[in-house]
C-alpha cells in the first residue's frame, strides 16, 4: 500500500499496457521472441505492480484467490486436454497435426492452445506466489 500520488497515477496508466504487452507476447510467440512462459510472467507482473501500489486487498478484488487457483489449474488442464483430444482422433499424445484438416493448420492451433495453457499456469502461479509471500505473517506472530 503506497500513498504517493505519483506512483498511484503512474501505476494506473501503466498496468493496462503491461497486460496488453503480455497478451501480444502470448499470441505472437510463433512469430517473434516470447511465448506462454514469458507472457504469463509479464501479465502476472502487471497485476503484482497493481497489488504493490494499491495493496493486496485491492489486488484480490481484481483476481480472487479462487479465481487465481482456477486459472493455474485451467492452464495445466488445457495443455493436457489438447493431448487427449489428439488421442481421441487416433494420433499420438500431443500430436497437433490432427486438430485441423491441414497439418500446418493443426500445428498452429495446437501450439496456440498449449502456449495459452502455459501462460495461464505461469501467470496464476506467479501471482499466487507473490500474494502468499507478502501476506504470510510468520510463525511467531
Amino acid at each position: 500500500m503506497n500513498d504517493d500520488p505519483i506512483l498511484r497515477v503512474c501505476t494506473k496508466i501503466i498496468v493496462g499496457p503491461i497486460i496488453l504487452f503480455g497478451l501480444y507476447v502470448q499470441f505472437h510467440g510463433d512469430y517473434g521472441p516470447g511465448g506462454g512462459f514469458q507472457a504469463g510472467v509479464i501479465v502476472a507482473a502487471g497485476f503484482i505492480l497493481h497489488s504493490l501500489i494499491f495493496g493486496l486487498k485491492e489486488g484480490r478484488k481484481l483476481i480472487s484467490e479462487k479465481l487465481n487457483l482456477f486459472i493455474m489449474i485451467l492452464g495445466v488442464i488445457l495443455y493436457g486436454g489438447v493431448g487427449l483430444v489428439s488421442i481421441y482422433y487416433d494420433a499420438e499424445y500431443l500430436n497437433y497435426s490432427i486438430l485441423a484438416h491441414d497439418t500446418k493448420h493443426g500445428q498452429h492451433i495446437g501450439i496456440l492452445l498449449i502456449e495459452f495453457g502455459v501462460g495461464l499456469t505461469v501467470a496464476g502461479v506467479m501471482l499466487i506466489l507473490f500474494h502468499l509471500f507478502s501476506s504470510w505473517q510468520g510463525k511467531d506472530k
Binding site: G29, D30, Y31, G32, P33, G35, F37, G75, V76, Y79, G80, G83, Y93, L94, Y96, T103, K104, Q107, H108, G110, I111, I114, E115, G117, V118, T121, V122
Partner: peptide, 25 residues
C-alpha cells in the same frame, strides 16, 4: 511442418511438447 518462423517456439511447443508439459506441471 508448422509454418511458423520462430524455431524456439516450434521446438518448445511441438517437437518437445512433452518436455514443456512437464515444465508446466
Amino acid at each position: 511442418d508448422m509454418g511458423i518462423p520462430n524455431l524456439v517456439t516450434g521446438v518448445l511447443a511441438s517437437y518437445r511438447g512433452y518436455d514443456t508439459l512437464g515444465e508446466t506441471v
